[in-house]
Design a protein around this nucleic acid. Structure first.
Lengths: 210, 210
DNA sequence: TGTTTGATGTTTACGGCGTAAACTTTATGT
DNA sequence: ACATAAAGTTTACGCCGTAAACATCAAACA
């Protein structure tokens, strides 16, 4: 049950009337919109159903429960983030520049869609295991970064230690920066949030030592 | 209204019967316990009241609403984290060692009390503004780190750039590691989670460059 | 072509939640 | 001792997630 993703309409334009046409997608869209406007606390199945104009039980034909809807929204977020990061590295060629571009895309995504970003990381490991598509989408972003680290090492630019540890470090720093900015935890009023990332990436490059 | 913190009983042992004795603290304790056992979703005013043996409206004498209770729990978390970090730096004398100890304490706290840690960072900046005590408790942990960075610079060990940017970098990396480990996002099965922090701190020290 | 059938959506119902208002009880200061 | 305000209770309302029974429609098959 619950719809196989690939089985969708070949000619989706035909508006070939289901009962609704394409609930699921409509629900997802409404959920995302609600999330952006009113925050995570306001994201309820009933409100989403209301906005889409169906009964409050209709969503259960497409999502097992509220968590499943949230997981689907999170998954969409990871896919969009992966796209943004992909677009970012389409420009620069040098590994370090590519990593910088990815970092920017990551932080920008977080700052532009805070509620969405938050939801993406709101499920703990156990909860996430029930949604393998989500896990795959999330892994994807890590793999992109790791590839750049390895490329940097092959080019002799990046230090030759465990590449996964290096990728962990960079990802943790970028992710940490994103969530701390979101939390307003290290926002000092003078500085534009996004300008924080370049000094940070410089510090990562150079290290702490004198 | 809502109790001035300092005005509490001088001799709290006397069990000088309020109606309850010391609700608020009991509520906070129950909330923390519930959080640890059942996760953030299960943290409800009514359940907390039930556990403490009081009517479901009683908590409103001590907390304006559910968010206020959550904020108080978060604040306790920051205070405890600050204590843990304080205890960690009581040993080593060298700035870099102290930073390492602080990082360990931070990640350990997150891994040992995941639900609590999550709650601490679950409120966005706007929401947090309503709870200045929370904000102060949170700032405290940052200031400890910044002090170590400055000490390292004075000792000539740490690179002489903007110390706040350096502190941001280290904090972001440590915080990012903590939340990613919690999310199971970069857990690779072979390695013990806490062993991740030392390679990361080494990478921070040395930088990425070859 | 007409019928069946499974997918999609609705109605009704239940209990839990946050919160407000009106009420009762108790501790404390005069 | 008694008034008063703080602390706790009861009752009530509307929202939520979810389950079950029911209705409707699209499509496959006879």
């Amino acid at each position: 049950m619950n719809r196989v993703p690939g089985k969708r309409r070949q000619t989706p334009r035909r508006k070939r009337g289901y009962h609704h046409g394409d609930l699921r997608r409509a629900l997802l869209g409404a959920a995302l919109d609600l999330l952006a406007r009113k925050g995570p606390a306001a994201l309820s199945l009933r409100e989403v159903a209301r906005r889409v104009g169906v009964s409050h039980a209709a969503p259960y034909r497409h999502f097992a429960d509220r968590d499943a809807l949230v997981a689907a929204v999170a998954q969409e977020g990871f896919e969009e983030l992966a796209r943004a990061m992909g677009a970012a590295v389409s420009g620069p060629a040098a590994p370090l520049d590519r990593m910088r571009a990815m970092g920017h895309a990551y932080v920008r995504f977080a700052l532009e869609r805070p509620a969405h970003f938050r939801v993406m990381f709101s499920m703990d490991a156990d909860a996430r295991e029930a949604y393998p598509a989500l896990a795959r989408a999330a892994d994807n972003t890590y793999d992109r970064l790791l590839a750049e680290v390895r490329a940097g090492q092959r080019a002799g630019i990046v230090r030759d230690t465990d590449p996964e540890a290096l990728a962990d470090t960079v990802w943790a720093a970028v992710h940490g920066l994103a969530v701390l900015l979101l939390d307003g935890q290290l926002r000092r009023p003078e500085t534009e949030p996004e300008t924080r990332i370049d000094p940070m990436l410089d510090n990562l490059r150079m290290g702490l030592l004198a």
